[in-house]
Design a protein around this nucleic acid. Structure first.
Lengths: 339, 339
DNA sequence: GACAAAATTGTAAGCGCTTACACTTTTGGC
DNA sequence: GCCAAAAGTGTAAGCGCTTACAATTTTGTC
């Protein structure tokens, strides 16, 4: 096996007949490079298949050409979806995508924030997906000097893309109320220590308020975004004696779990109980779950684009923006009029 | 904010009273360092809070410190699972994980192979997940000089981890036959142009052979690994007039689709038709799908470990190994005795 | 105790890139 | 056409680390 020599900027310089310095500038589209030189360099570089060494660029004070996507877990449907969409955008902009999964573990998460400084030497930017930030972590991120963008986060000092969670929950709840249900149970996200403090819960409550209904504490339970947890939560609700005629789950996976628990307790959906979630997971179509759809891939792609913009036009340090994408009620077979 | 000078190896050298070179060796636990020096260096380094610059190490050491995971798509359950498991292993070995999704597109795939040489300058190794190699691509991979390992591939000149597909299919089919079914339909993978040429189909056929049964062409249909496609395939089968009493789907997602199609045609599972898949997708538990479970995360982690071993002990160029992990029949509610 | 071999430590040359600064060429006004 | 300013290009000094190889110290043997 022939050990082929790495293509360096030197090779491009020689082939294009220019100096290393000019090549470096041309490659990074810096000013003071004639169009002719620009063309020659581009040609030579592509002919040689040249890509700058991330390590060398970084060491010399430049950029690495890669960005990291940080997700609480990479296996959940939502994240896998967002990651792939973002990866496409990054790839098209010439960035390598480094994947960092926190694996839903506090220790890994802690490690991540501790290694931030070192990570900053290996990537130019960070795309955070639904990372729940603790006090001081925004500052740590800021101090790292990395460009940051995020999906589904709130009150952050960088570009963010998400949906209007409160509105989505309102849409789902409103749908249930419109069908004549008023004994509503809610499987609220337990990501936040207080389940009645999440945006989706607020949307749920607002819809009830508008109908002059109040939330009964016995009808509220926390659940993580998984079938298992949804099932556990719904079982708890039933065991408690709650007999709602409709259930709003904060996400489809929790709703699937609720469906299972309901079935296990001899309750028929939608005959006895209506169920609605948020997400529009591919399985939801399959199971006929009514839900509020959110554009997951779009959020990932959009945020990735914002990050690329920041990375490319660092001369324009404009205000961080927050974009909310539309959600849409999808009626299927798990919701119907109260008898 | 005070721009504090970075702590370099030079600072550690001065504080410990040794040369940069000795410090470098001590820090990396190389031989030929006295215990005394080792201690002094460790002390100085920790006192200074020294962390080596990743960029500099990589530049000087000639490695990139990252590996790429290449998947046909990053969104499918199987791949998301394998990717996360592999990422953990790579992270623990100090490698960054670059994600490359081929997005199920021929153009992206083509691009990937064309850019291989350039990629080789940015990563040290490649973990391929179920990439269907065309002629010449093995050579291209080889020529890149990258260390390679894979999951679920066959006849490749590098370390591979997978399951015995033929056996898994045999297990599923055998289960059906054991329940008294002999009119079996099969949703075979269409990844290969000839659906009767896949390992899983061979396993299916072998089980039938053992019972002196033959495969009826009308009972065979190709399907991709998705609900949609499983549904389409099953519908085609039914439209064709096939009336199997049991269906073997090459993967769970195709089985879900089959379930839908069956229901849409008024066929009840398992009353009229039994259905079994392969995978043990989390939804399978939820839906009560009988299946043959395969350890997905284990495959990803195992292959990642093999790759790391190659990367670390490059002094031992031993033979590529092929590891097959166990699969296990899981009986749930979609299979039962033929009435 | 002398001397060679082994163990430890130091010197210095890069790794591939960016960038301040010096230098050369082009441009434009008169 | 002349000259200063502007535009384009090149030189060379690092960035912080690894690693041949040279220099030094330690060890062991007779």
């Amino acid at each position: 096996m022939v050990r082929t020599h790495r293509v360096t900027i030197q090779d491009v310089a020689v082939l294009s007949g220019l100096s290393i310095c000019t090549v470096s500038r041309a490659l990074r589209n810096l000013p003071n490079v004639s169009e002719k030189a620009q063309r020659q360099v581009a040609e030579a570089a592509s002919k040689l298949g040249y890509k700058a060494s991330a390590a060398a660029s970084r060491l010399a004070g430049g950029t690495t050409g890669s960005v990291a996507i940080v997700a609480p877990t990479a296996t959940a449907w939502f994240f896998a979806q967002a990651v792939e969409a973002a990866e496409e955008v990054f790839g098209d902009s010439g960035y390598d995508t480094v994947l960092i999964s926190l694996r839903n573990k506090a220790t890994v998460r802690k490690q991540f924030f501790e290694d931030l400084e070192s990570l900053a030497q290996r990537v130019d930017g960070l795309l955070l997906l639904n990372i729940d930030l603790a006090p001081g972590e925004v500052e740590a991120l800021d101090a790292s000097g990395l460009a940051v963008a995020s999906v589904g986060m709130r009150n952050v000092p960088w570009d963010n893309v998400g949906i209007d969670d409160e509105h989505a929950a309102w849409q789902a709840t409103q749908h249930l109320l419109g069908l004549g249900h008023w004994d509503l149970a809610v499987l609220s996200s337990n990501e936040h220590p207080v389940v009645t403090e999440t945006p989706r819960f607020r949307g749920f409550r607002r819809a009830l308020d508008e109908h002059h209904l109040t939330v009964h504490p016995d009808f509220v339970v926390g659940a993580g975004p998984s079938i298992d947890d949804g099932r556990r939560a719904m079982t708890e609700l039933i065991t408690r004696g709650a007999r709602p005629t409709a259930v709003f789950a904060h996400c489809d996976e929790a709703a699937f779990g609720a469906l299972t628990a309901l079935r296990e307790h001899g309750l028929s959906v939608p005959k006895n109980v209506s169920v609605i979630g948020i997400d529009d997971h591919p399985m939801s179509w399959f199971l006929g779950l009514s839900t509020v759809a959110q554009p997951v891939a779009d959020q990932g792609a959009f945020a990735a684009n914002l990050l690329c913009d920041r990375l490319l036009n660092n001369e324009t340090p404009n205000q961080p923006s927050n974009h909310l994408l539309d959600t849409k009620l999808i009626e299927r077979k798990t919701t119907r009029h109260k008898r």
